[in-house]
Design a protein around this nucleic acid. Structure first.
Lengths: 110, 110
DNA sequence: TCACAATATATCCATACGGCTATATAGCTA
DNA sequence: TAGCTATATAGCCGTATGGATATATTGTGA
């Protein structure tokens, strides 16, 4: 799990890779589409995609000759879960919210 | 802001540094205290602390001869805010929650 | 099946990173 | 002020990272 976080955080440490995730938030995209906004070579983008994929942040598909990428939200959730332990440090209303939600009928926690 | 995220995520990519943050979640600690759990040299720990501080994740104090560190939650909040944009991808109840909270009287958002 | 389009891999290069040891600095305390 | 304690900085080393160019691979369509 710690290894997973290592890979995820270090994948997220690069602005190009975060931008790629941002693009994928709008839906799947081919390598060419993902590369388009950047002044980087195609191999450089493929490298970034590999890093993202190995961190579990994206997945590759196959469609004719292209290999579209899609977001893999589980890895981001791993980060969110990790950071949740610190939420109390900045969000004063968090405890109140938590108390509140626990009383709400029909609210589904996961 | 992107630069900030670069520094924060890359600081968080190291398990030693995340463990240090974990320790600081229990309150301020001296360098020696922070170094204790690890089989690393003192300079190595100081280096990690510098990385964390430059990312804004911790702050240094001064107490007699020691320089205790404390957590600086704002940087973690920066991450939480960034990741919040992706929350809808894994948390099905998020939209409902959001709707719900917007209707709650007296609930204070920040 | 041949040529092209989309993408991946190999290799090389410069810089960054994480560890170490040795040494410097700063503040107490005797 | 001398020496101790706590910590920082310097310099070195091996490995990882992010970029480039050149080349390989794979599927499609003529």
């Amino acid at each position: 799990m710690d290894d997973k976080l290592d890979a995820i955080f270090s994948a997220l440490a690069d602005p190009t890779r975060r931008a790629i995730l941002g693009r994928l938030a709008n839906g799947k995209a081919t390598v060419a589409e993902l590369a388009d906004p950047f002044e980087l070579s195609q191999p450089a983008i493929s490298k970034h995609l590999k890093v993202l994929e190995q961190a579990g942040l994206i997945r590759s598909g196959r469609e004719a000759t292209s290999r579209p990428r899609v977001l893999e939200p589980a890895a981001l959730k791993t980060v969110a879960d990790w950071i949740a332990d610190y939420r109390r440090f900045w969000d004063q209303s968090f405890d109140r919210l938590d108390d509140y939600l626990s009383k709400v009928q029909g609210y589904e926690n996961d």
